[in-house]
Write a protein that binds this DNA or RNA. Structure first.
Lengths: 137, 137
DNA sequence: GGGAACACTGTACCACGGTACAGATTGTTA
DNA sequence: TAACAATCTGTACCGTGGTACAGTGTTCCC
């Protein structure tokens, strides 16, 4: 079973100890069980959950959005159709992010490819490269 | 030519007027030319540049990282190899982001696909879906 | 040429996402 | 059974990325 203390979980997922308490306050992670002393005991599930939060944050999702993602489920309050609808919205967002990243990647690659022609290049090569690929909002 | 005022640019790229001044202070956008009165006049390049900043922010890059991306260029200070090296680092980051987004997408799709089986699902369907696909850091 | 609308500078304030105490308990180990 | 570490709660503080004035000058339009 192996339950983790606060510092153990913090080390495992590489976040500050206090961040865990903050996430708990924010409702991003559920209140863990406690020992009689009041000490928190985290199940291994928490590792996955906090990892997910960190990942999603790095991808530009806010904590509120992450909370929404984590709570997407069918229950008596939320019908299947509602869940599907929200999920589709999130999926569309993710597709957009992927497409944008792909454009930036292309621009960077164009940049490095043209790099052998040394000497100063234009004002802002990455933007030029993006424009040459039809970068639009 | 059509130079833009602060409010015109702000409207065009859909940011607050003050944000433009903030980006200028931060060095994310160069100081634009001024009229004799001191009023800023933005060339159309600024539209692309601010768009790029907004995009990159939504993808989880910090303003410092964005600044670095925007200043990637070959000049007397920076050799071709150095630029290439930094660009490769950024490319790797972007690949990682894309891969993570793809995993999340798959998990969401798994979630909606299994949705017809209505009634309450597990504690956190998206994490379960991710785990079933071997989600790791 | 007078008033509304806009821009200028400087500075203060704000929300988000943490991070750091202080002071009290509990756990561990020599 | 000390004493040192880890945890508890509450609260205060911090960096990032803006956003909002106040007070003054400029532009536009009737």
């Amino acid at each position: 079973m192996s339950l983790l203390s606060r510092s153990q979980l913090a080390e495992k997922v590489n976040v500050n100890i206090e961040t865990l308490r903050y996430y708990e306050r924010r409702g991003l992670i559920p209140e863990p069980q406690r020992k009689d002393s009041g000490y928190r005991q985290y199940s291994p599930d928490y590792v996955v959950r906090v990892h997910f939060i960190q990942k999603a944050k790095a991808l530009g999702f806010t904590l509120n959005e992450i909370q929404e993602l984590l709570s997407l489920r069918v229950n008596s309050q939320t019908s299947c159709d509602q869940v599907r609808e929200r999920a589709e919205l999130k999926l569309a967002e993710m597709d957009k992010k992927i497409a944008d990243l792909q454009k930036m990647k292309n621009a960077l690659q164009t940049l490095t490819a043209s790099c052998h022609s040394d000497g100063p290049t234009g004002e802002c090569p990455i933007l030029e490269a993006l424009e040459s690929e039809g970068f639009t909002l």
